[in-house]
Design a binder for these strands. Structure first.
Lengths: 287, 287
DNA sequence: GTTCCGCATGAATCGATAG
DNA sequence: ACTATCGATTCATGCGGAA
């Protein structure tokens, strides 16, 4: 069995990324500091300067990513003075100009979003998961993230009519045809581009940790075992920990020394688990 | 009891809008033709020219909307040749430059999204509902759209409630205000900015009708009875019909004569109900 | 008058093939 | 090479007719 390497690098992504090799990363998953948020820890980048702050970093990301790799950017603009900031959509346009392809925008629907309301808006319950690629041909392992079929199936497929058993071409010229009988016994289906995940409230010691399920989904979808995952804003190390548990190599960069210790402790725990007999770890692996 | 007026105007929105009075509209809810869609019926606007096509129309919308009114724009960019089009986010930036405030972006999560499978992407299951305003102080009646606990928050819920709601609406045209009020005893909470609604695929005689619940939600949230709702791309007239059933005046503009007839028939049906003795209609009204 | 169940269709997208 | 057309793929819902 090959060894899984989990590297944690301390420093500013803009600089540290320069030490990484061209075309060496299979997947980048990251949640950078949002503009004007968490000023205490990251100093806060203002919305006006966000794009110019991000572009030198994304330039390096473009260099280190393999041609068939994928870049997932988790971000959401805040509301300020009654309006949504535009820096995120400006960033999309700027990244395209830099050479990235804007392949898709997934929605992360936060089921248990922060409670509260304001006179002019409701709770914000979603974030963007922007997918960028270097080329149109990238690796995507769709079967790895199939989900249980909806409840409708058991009823719908109970009795099949005549047209259900043959390929029945739609009459409206959409070109859409179906053969219902192909669906019988199907237990999983392909998901869509809306993810329903809860935010985790558990004590990550990091102000904006995303749930394990988020990097997990993308790591399974866009990499295979022994591939390499990069998180240039590692924070408390969620991406690295998940990558390791899924047998992916990973590299994390974090500017705050305090978090470096937290990350290393997390990795350590995994190490411990790895050698402990009969853990959930193995169970997960075999499933 | 005051009279509800529902006007249907035939013609190109860009021109017809000029005949409307300044600051006379409380809410604009519309779903314009998307770029490169529905070519057969509407001719299709190319992504490259979409913004310049839309701006003259939105300029008139800005003029006719009251200072405390709201503009809701339902739209979603398509994917072509492996990439998402950028015309929608360019439109957001252009509208701001035109004087609109980009207040919020709601997500419409389409539970029954179009099927299909591709090597590089999953099914697209969401659309944007962009909220624009003229000023920071706009009318918002948040209590009108409160939902029972669990209905909105929990994903698990299999919605007999919603199905009943819709069916009820189609029978008596009351809108689901009545149904919500039946949830007495249940604790209600404010919703968030993610809407879970299914597309209605039958009967509408229009290739892209949105479900009644969509305009319903925004009409209740941003207007009160006897206010005026405008839909500059009326299509099969869903917005007008719902507005009328909620006791709002409304104006619809539609360029295709064929749809004008459909809209008028829909309004007519409502009219009939109005004069039928002893209907649920009155009961709803008195609540 | 209700409930149940059959079933068409929906703002889709890509790759291959033809002109 | 570049554009136009066509076939293949596939999930969940609400309507309408039957029981």
């Amino acid at each position: 069995m090959k060894e899984i390497i989990t590297k944690v690098l301390e420093g500013d992504s803009k600089e540290v990324l320069k030490t990484l090799t061209d075309n060496s990363i299979d997947l980048i998953v990251t949640s950078p500091p949002y503009a004007d948020r968490r000023k205490k820890t990251y100093g806060g980048i203002s919305p006006e300067h966000y794009v110019e702050w991000f572009l030198p970093i994304s330039k390096e990301l473009l260099r280190v990513l393999k041609p068939d790799g994928t870049f997932i950017l988790n971000i959401k603009e805040n509301a300020e003075n009654g309006e949504r900031s535009t820096y995120v959509i400006e960033l999309i346009l700027a990244l395209r100009k830099q050479g990235w392809l804007w392949t898709e925008e997934f929605i992360w629907h936060k089921k248990n979003s922060y409670p509260g309301k304001w006179p002019n808006r409701f709770r914000d319950a979603w974030e963007r998961l922007l997918q960028f690629n270097k080329t149109k041909k990238f690796n995507m392992y769709q079967d790895e993230v199939k989900v249980p079929v909806g409840d409708w199936a058991s009823e719908r497929l109970k009795n099949l009519s005549k047209t259900d058993k043959i390929r029945d071409t739609s009459k409206n010229g959409s070109g859409f045809g179906k053969n219902i009988s192909n669906w019988v016994g199907k237990e999983t289906v392909y998901p869509n581009n809306v993810l329903h995940l809860s935010t985790e409230c558990n004590n990550k010691n990091h102000s904006a940790a995303f749930p394990d399920a988020l990097p997990e989904w993308f790591i399974k979808l866009f990499t295979k075992e022994y591939d390499t995952v990069l998180d240039p804003f590692a924070g408390s190390g969620t991406t690295l920990r998940v990558a390791k548990s899924l047998y992916r190599n990973s590299i994390g960069i974090e500017i705050l020394p305090g978090y470096i210790d937290i990350i290393k402790r997390q990795i350590q725990e995994k190490e411990f688990l790895l050698f402990e007999p009969n853990t959930e770890y193995e169970a997960t692996k075999s499933k």
